[in-house]
Simulated scan of single mutants.
Amino acid sequence: MNGPEALAALPPARRAELIYATARSELSNRLWRAALGDSDSANSASNPAGRPGLPLGSLVEMMGGGGSAQPGTAATGATAAGHPHHCCCCRHHHGDAAPGATPAAAARAVPSAPTITVPGTVFPQGGPADAVGEARGGLLALGSNAQFAPALARAAEATGVPAGAIAAIVDAEAARRADGSWNPLSRNPRSSAAGLGQFLSGTWQDMARTPGTWLNETAASHGWLDAQGRIRPQARSALLQLRYDPEASIRTVADFARLNLDRLESDGLRVRADPEALAKAAYLSHHLGLGDARRFLRGGLVPDRARTLLVAQIGGAAAEQRIARTGNATEAHREWLLAYIDRRIQPDRFAG
């Protein structure tokens, strides 16, 4: 039975629900692309589905105000506490020149890692037979990742970032086991990125020093911070090892997303206008870091920076081919990253 026949065979209520969900996702994606100023031709080149973009005037639907970023602005933003928000994972994923590959394709699992118990956290191996977990008043369809539903629900409740958006970020970053489940022991062999959120060591320590985050509260409760809120040298190893705890990683993904979204909105970028736009903006900041995400949203990265990031993501030869085809490194990197985000960051996939 083909697609149209299968759709026609559904009960009217279910058929209407699927049509509405598809239309909503399509509109969300078009608003996201329009908000970035993508033209129809750019969309057709970078979007495998060939979905047309909206005119640049639709920017008002999702974002407001803000002039163009200047090339000389700082590379990293800062939290309300003044700590820099470095990129979590960018410049550290390689080997995905093939279409459909993910930035985390090179991630591998650490054979073993010491267990640090976070009070109240239990993750049974294999997960329950029921593949649907409750999160933030709704249901998450997590399949083999149902064991992470409680942590996603807690993270969503604490930060206001939808559980589906958090799940989409983790899904784009973490390595997978043979059954498709996210591997908490994910580790990128080419960088310090580790855990379900692929946090670099520096970013993880920044989050531990940032008041109001789950990681800051946990570090304080373990005595890992001194009176000035700095990480005690002898506690650094234990703190970094905590990246392999699923609860810690998921909660920090959510906190990092909340902080980045707050700062983007304070810049006049309406990144919470729509659930899919929120998820994509959160991932963009997670992937690039706040400073580069701001520049990306406001017109694009400078060519040298764009080339460096593209080479790190897909390799030198593939990057040069894309740059030659598009005519410049800024557009080549933008095209690649937008296509990846369109393909992978779809929070509706996790809706129950």
Rank of each mutant, 00 (worst) to 15 (best):
H83P: 02
G65M: 08
Q70R: 15
A332Q: 09
A172S: 08
L140V: 03
S25P: 02
S28G: 14
H85D: 07
V118A: 05
A220Y: 00
I19E: 14
P189M: 06
A168T: 04
R349A: 04
D342T: 02
N183E: 13
R14D: 13
S68F: 07
A98V: 13
V161L: 11
P189V: 06
S144F: 00
S201N: 14
P4H: 07
L152E: 12
A219H: 00
R187C: 01
I341G: 05
G100V: 03
G138C: 03
A106E: 01
D226G: 06
P71F: 06
G72C: 05
E320F: 05
A109E: 09
H222K: 13
T203R: 07
A81H: 04
D255I: 02
A281D: 11
L200E: 11
I231S: 12
P184D: 15
E26R: 05
S25I: 00
D304I: 11
T159K: 07
E331T: 14
T330S: 15
V132I: 12
V60N: 12
P189H: 07
I169W: 03
V122R: 15
P84C: 04
G53S: 15
V132L: 10
R270Q: 13
Q70D: 10
M62Q: 15
P162F: 07
C87M: 05
I341W: 05
L301P: 04
L139V: 10
R294K: 15
